[in-house]
Amino acid sequence: MFTLQIGYQVRDYGAWKKVFDSDPAGRAASGARSVRVFRDAEDQNSVAVFLDFDTKDAATVFLERLRSQVWDKPEVIGQLVSASPTARTLEEVAREGQGAG
C-alpha cells in the first residue's frame, strides 16, 4: 500500500473543507482506497491529508492531477491556503495493532 501524505496550511478550515469535499481532482475515481484528514491539535489551520492507493503509480498519477487541476489554479486554491501544499508518497512496510493483518 502507498499513502500520499499532503500538508496544507489553510486560511479557513471550513472553506478549505468545502472545496476538499467537492473532490476537484477526482480522488474517488483515481483509486484512492481511503482518505483521512487530520488537523494539528495546536494549529487548527494546519491540515494533513492521507490518501491510500494500491500502487505507487496510482498515487503519482493522482498527485500530478491534483497539482495541475487544483494547486496550479489560483481561482481554485488561491484564497484557501497561506503556503504551498507539500506532498510525499509513503510506502507501508509494517503495520501493528488494530487492523493489522
Rank of each mutant, 00 (worst) to 15 (best):
R67C: 09
S68H: 13
V76C: 14
L66E: 06
G97C: 07
I77L: 12
V19A: 10
Q98D: 12
Y13K: 00
S34V: 05
E42Q: 10
R39V: 03
D40M: 05
D52K: 02
D43L: 06
P85Q: 12
A32F: 02
R33S: 09
L90G: 05
E96A: 15
V49A: 11
D52S: 04
Q79L: 12
G101Q: 14
R88L: 08
A25G: 11
S84G: 14
R36V: 02
D43E: 14
A58P: 00
G26M: 03
D40W: 01
D21W: 10
S30Y: 03
R65P: 10
L4T: 01
W16H: 08
A100Y: 03
G14W: 06
T86A: 15
A32N: 02
I6H: 05
A25P: 03
A41K: 11
A83L: 12
Q9E: 12
S84N: 10
D21T: 09
R33D: 13
E42S: 09
R39M: 01
A48D: 04
A28F: 08
G101F: 12
Q98F: 14
F2E: 00
S22G: 13
P74C: 13
F62C: 02
D57I: 05
D54G: 06
Q5F: 06
D23P: 12
Q79P: 11
V70N: 11
F62R: 00
G7A: 15
S22C: 04
L90T: 02
V49Y: 06
R11N: 13
L63F: 08
Q98I: 14
D40S: 04
V76E: 10
A87D: 05
E75K: 15
D12E: 13
K18Y: 09
L51F: 07
D54H: 10
R67M: 15
G97I: 07
I6K: 04
L80W: 04
R27N: 06
I77M: 13
V70F: 07
D52P: 04
K73M: 14
V47Y: 07
Q9T: 14
G78N: 14
D40I: 02
S46N: 08
K17D: 03
S22D: 13
S22H: 06
V61C: 01
F38H: 09
A59W: 00
G101K: 07
A41I: 08
P74Y: 14
L63M: 11
A32Y: 01
R95F: 07
L4K: 01
A58C: 03
Y13I: 02
Q98P: 08
P85R: 09
